[in-house]
Design a binder for these strands. Sequence first.
DNA 1: ATTGCTTCCTGAGCGC
DNA 2: TGCGCTCAGGAAGCAA
Length: 266
Amino acid sequence: MPELPEVQTIINGLNKKVISKTISSIIEKRRGTIIFGENIKICEFGKIENIKRRGKYIIIKTSKDLKLIIHLRMTGKLIFEKDLNNSSSHSRAEIIFSDKTKLIFDDVRTFGKIQIINVNKTINSLQKLGVEPLSNKFDAEYLKNEIKNRKAPIKNVLLDQKVIAGLGNIYVAEILFRAKVHPATLANKIKTTDLKRIVSETKSVLQEAIKHNGTTISDYRSVEDKNGEFQNFLRVYGKETCECGAMIQKIKQAGRSTYFCEECQK
DNA sequence: ATTGCTTCCTGAGCGC
DNA sequence: TGCGCTCAGGAAGCAA
């Protein structure tokens, strides 16, 4: 499940591999993978000028004033391939470059999408995104204000992309463990000291994970098709026993597994 | 406005 | 070996 650190690692890889390459064509291998913006007319895709991240979205800008907005959802990957004859088992779309290399969008569960729009347009889901957790705008004051009317469990609220853009199930588990906050605590009941810890642990977990090229539990791979290493540093997600010796609890919240330690997170 | 349920989808892992 | 079941989960869409 690519979350912010995995998406950032992919973008770092793309910046090494595909910047300034000319897109000669984009091939849809499975219907519904590529969505074109309204009234868009494309003669040429142009050259890749820059690649940015917003939340879990990858935004590729080209010299023909187009934006490719890619969301990998759970199992999407972008794999750089030097040989046009090679593909992958779940290739859903392929971006072909004029130098006979390509970028394969591989996605087992087919939830990922590539949207193509004009550079001056945007899409709703991007507009609705909350703050970037690694920016200075994300601080205890922001979080306090965002959650003051939220009665949902803190776990659910941290997963809400409209509040913070880029967190997913694994990193929220790690953040709450490090911040020593019980995931079922109602968001508007959390004390300011705990909010401050949530903010600082969010930043440090994400930074450490980016440093280790993300977390590979099953599907995530970098552009070079390599695993991340942060799974070796997880302290609660997928664990059975806590460092303190207590059993890790596993419950369902918002339809997803939550791992936490009853002793360390009260 | 907010919450939580359902839906999309495929493959892995399990019990029988 | 093979069948059917459950689980994994990001986010849109919907009802309450």
